[in-house]
Simulated scan of single mutants.
Amino acid sequence: MVVKEAILNRKGAKKASEIPNEVLQLLNQGKLESVNLTEWLVINHIVLIKNVFPSIGLEGSLEFVVAELEKQNAKTGMKAIRMTGALLDKVILKESERKKKDLINKCSNHVSDSVRCWAAFMNKNPNDSLEDKLSYIRPFAADHHFGVREIAWMSIRGDLSQDIEKSLELLVDWAKSENENIRRFSVESIRPRGVWTKHIEILKQEPDKAFPILNLLKSDPSKYVQDSVGNWLNDASKTKPDWVIDLCEEWTKDTDIKSTSRIIKKAKRTILKKN
C-alpha cells in the first residue's frame, strides 16, 4: 500500500480529536509512523495487534495477547507497549531459535514505530549480561523515531540502575559515538530523576559518579544531546546543588563556547528559581 505524500509529510495534530480519520486508521493498521506525541499516545495497541500479528506470523498468539491487554485495560501508551513486549517475549519462548530471531527482526524493523517499541521490550533474557542487553537495545537507541528512542532507554533503565558502576563504565563508550542519538542515550538512560521512571538514588546523592560521561559531552554540538546533559544536571541540582554549581563554574572557565553555555543555563534553572 502506498501512503499519500501529504500524509507522510504531515505536521501532526495538536489534539487527538483533530487527527484525521485516515491517519488514525493507518496508524492503527501499522502502516504509518506517528509524527508527534499526540499521535503516539492515541494509537490503540489492541487494534494494532489485530492488524499486525497475522502479517508477521503470530496469528496463533493474537487471542492470548489481546485477552491479557484487555484484562489490564492496557490499550494505549506506555502500559500497552510494555505489556505487549513482555507478552511477545513469552510467546516467542515457545518458538525455535530461528523463528524467534525472525519474529524479533520483523518487529524491530517494522514500519510502525509502535511495533518497534514492542520489540524494545522483547528479548528479556534474565541470564543475559548487561553488555548483551545494551547490544540488543542499541539499534532502538539509534532509531530515527523519537518514540522508539525514548522507549529504548526506558526498557533498560532498570537493568542499568541495578549495577550503576558497570553501566557507567559501559556507557562511556556510547558517549563517544559519532551518532548523536547514541550519545544522548548515554546520558538520558541514567538521569538521576528521569521521566516516567523510578529515580536512581545513588546518582541523586553521588552525581560525580557520572562525571566521565558528562564531561565528554559538555561541549557536544548536538542540541539534542545538550538538552539531555542540561536536564541531567538539573536533576542532580535538586539534591546536590553545590556540586552542580561547582561543575558549571569549572566548565565556564575551561570551555567558553556556546554549546557549553547552553547546557549550563539548563543545568542551573532550578537553582536560579530558588535564589
Score class of each variant (00 low, 15 high):
Leu103Ile: 12
Asp89Gln: 09
Ile104Asp: 03
Thr76Cys: 03
Ser114Ala: 15
Asp113Gln: 14
Val115Arg: 14
Val91Ile: 14
Lys100Phe: 08
Ser114Cys: 15
Cys117Ile: 14
Asn105Cys: 04
Gly85Glu: 07
Gly77Arg: 12
His110Gln: 09
Ala74Trp: 10
Val115Ala: 14
Phe121Thr: 13
Asp89Arg: 03
Met122Tyr: 15
Ile81Ala: 00
Gly77Ile: 00
Lys99Ala: 07
Leu69Asp: 01
Asn123His: 12
Leu87Phe: 07
Lys124Ile: 10
Asn123Trp: 06
His110Tyr: 12
Glu97Gln: 05
Leu93Gly: 07
Cys107Gly: 02
His110Thr: 06
Ile81Cys: 02
Lys75Asn: 06
Val111Asp: 10
Lys94Val: 09
Asn123Gly: 06
Trp118Phe: 14
Phe121Asp: 12
Asp89Ser: 08
Asp102Thr: 02
Lys79Gln: 14
Lys101Asp: 10
Gln72Val: 11
Ile81Gly: 00
Ser112Ile: 15
Lys101Asn: 08
Gly77Trp: 10
Leu87Gln: 06
Asp89Phe: 00
Val111Thr: 14
Asp113Ser: 12
Asn73Thr: 06
Ala119Leu: 05
Trp118Cys: 12
Trp118Ala: 11
Asp89Ile: 00
Ser108Trp: 07
Asn123Gln: 15
Lys124Asp: 11
Met83Asp: 05
Ile81Glu: 00
Lys99Trp: 03
His110Asp: 15
Leu93Phe: 09
Lys75Cys: 04
Trp118Leu: 12
Val111Cys: 10
Ala86Val: 03
Ile92Gly: 05
Arg98Asp: 15
Glu95Thr: 06
Ile81Phe: 00
Gly85Asn: 05
Met122Leu: 12
Leu87Thr: 01
Leu103Pro: 02
